[in-house]
Design a binder for these strands. Structure first.
Lengths: 342, 342
DNA sequence: CTGTTAGCGCATTCAA
DNA sequence: TTGAATGCGCTAACAG
């Protein structure tokens, strides 16, 4: 026998008033005599009354719910983004409806549909890797549901977004390698279709240009190549290499392994920089120099943008490119110009 | 101007029928002439009709939503639990309302309240570390909202749960250390109030007993002691130690660091086993032998239990203690009895 | 087979 | 200040 939840009508009956009055007394509605208001509020508390958000949603046409679409949570990065989001949405009284796409386009599309169906008040999303077509995002826009993209953007779609300054982050990293004396720097690239891959690659090139080091295509490796370790191993045996800039900490770690197996000392012979500053960077040996993307901030800022749009649908789109911070550890040589991340 | 969503009444009007008919035609209701059904379904599709789950929830008194409370997502473990949950809930057509407690009791209580308010059909939860009092769980039970606990249980509360067999997992680990010749095995304990800490500790003791090695209290260290590394360092300088069994991979890693700094070779002089088989265990050097808890299964099984209870509130409580699997890597010596995790 | 009526819990008119 | 009436979108019980 389900213990019936007490409704606004229950307490209205008990007090011989109408539900309207109770509603007004409980929300700030003002137009209720102080006496009744006190009475009603007291009884409500006593009975443990809890407003039914479902009913409220139905009449107010908003759900106090925000949808979140994220590729997955196994990367520390997204966990931090989530934490950042939650820190602001929970304070603002919003619930989070969370969907993961597992980097699959089909699931992503379905997730958007689900969230739209659920009538969320807004959507935060990081689109998945395979993203050549954006019809589903267009639909979101047409539904007039506020949307803020994080980390990865689609240029075809006009929406607010928060990204990390990948170009600058990569530039910082490679610039640092060059400053500490490296000249033959391998770059291990990220997934082809991602804007982040492209921007980091461009940052790499720009740093070379600044130091007038010629770009050498042979130094570029594809991160998703299953034979990556083997190819690096082969390459370094016959070519001079003194630095590695990887698209991710995980890829950097693969390079670490190859070098260690070959007995090449890090950072003396080859210095290595990863990307994302995941916890693993402090667990590997040597500890990995990496680019911190401030994922927590990414989440909190994106959530802020979204709340702005929800409050005022006519507010202008907002954009933010987060500055990165190079965290130097023992996989690179010392350089007084660099500050370590606090 | 918000593009109005088409409702059941819109399409009813357009076809000169009543909303009820439309409702019946769209749900399997049967009692509709084939012709009208076709017509209605066709128009619904054409107009892009999407049922409003809010309205449906209000009348059906269920939300097709499951609440999830997790301490946090930065541990890989919980990400996998989430993935397991989602794999079954999404198939069953349920949404996930996710709250994180950040291991804070206050937040946990608030999260339960939030989920109850949201009228979720059921709750999956891993309670936070500081959990001496369970009034809030009692409230959930009284509200008759199905509840399944994961990983950590409260003996005072009668509820379905899925846990990992911590006793057996620890036993396996320590038994393995003993089989490979260790006799002086340090145990680094987990948080005091957690059932998992206690059970792993008991498993450790049981393995010693099996091998008739006397229990030595000096070998027990507290994981949350900020001076842990220092204490271990001091101890091993004057006492024989040839093994470490840690409550977590992270704690195991602290031991690895101490040993490496002291120039003690792993696993030759001291073998080390962690717990949880987090990704870091493959990134540290040497790679860490660890106990895999099958978090994905934990999530999927818990979700299954919950769905059972939702479907039939009178179904009996269900319990599951997941078998663990010892994954041997290079931080321990070889032993043909052990199988590596696939 | 289909229309009518009612109601889920709440907020919000409009009268009184 | 308060009550009565209306509707949010949908399902379900009851008639016809």
């Amino acid at each position: 026998m389900k213990k019936k939840r007490v409704s606004i009508t229950d307490i209205a009956k008990a007090l011989n008033v109408t539900p309207s009055t109770v509603s007004r007394a409980l929300n700030g509605g003002g137009k209720v005599s102080e006496k009744k208001k006190q009475q009603i509020q007291a009884l409500a508390k006593e009975l443990g009354y809890r407003p039914n958000p479902i009913a409220r949603s139905l009449v107010e046409n908003k759900t106090q719910t925000i949808g979140l679409i994220i590729p997955e949570f196994t990367h520390h990065f997204y966990s931090r983004v989530l934490a950042g989001i939650e820190s602001v949405t929970s304070k603002a009284g919003y619930q989070l409806l969370i969907c993961t796409s597992n980097e699959k386009k089909r699931q992503e599309i379905k997730s958007f549909q689900t969230l739209l169906d659920a009538r969320v008040d807004g959507i935060l999303a990081t689109v998945c890797k395979k993203n050549d077509e954006f019809g589903h995002l267009q639909e979101v826009l047409e539904s007039e549901t506020p949307l803020v993209l994080m980390d990865r953007i689609c240029e075809e779609i006009e929406t607010s977004y928060v990204i990390s300054d990948d170009f600058e982050g990569a530039f910082q990293a490679v610039d640092f390698l060059l400053q500490t004396g490296c000249t033959q720097i391998i770059h291990i690239k990220g997934p082809k279709v991602l804007s982040t891959s492209f921007n980091r690659f461009m940052g790499y090139k720009e740093a070379l240009r600044k130091h007038q080091i010629p770009y050498n295509e042979e130094l570029i490796f594809e991160g998703n190549d299953p034979e990556l370790p083997e190819k690096i191993r082969t390459y370094i045996k016959t070519n001079p290499v003194d630095g590695v800039f990887a698209y991710s900490d995980y890829l950097a770690f693969e390079a670490v392994n190859v070098l260690r197996n070959e007995g090449i000392s890090i950072p003396d012979k080859v210095a290595i920089v990863g990307y994302a500053d995941e916890p693993i960077s402090t667990y590997v040996t040597p500890q990995l120099t990496s680019v911190n993307q401030r994922p927590f901030d990414m989440g909190s800022i994106a959530a802020g943008f979204l709340l702005n749009q929800i409050q005022d649908p006519n507010s202008p789109l907002e954009f933010k490119s987060l500055k990165t911070e190079l965290v130097t550890r023992s996989s690179t040589k010392k350089n007084q110009l660099a500050r370590s991340w606090e």
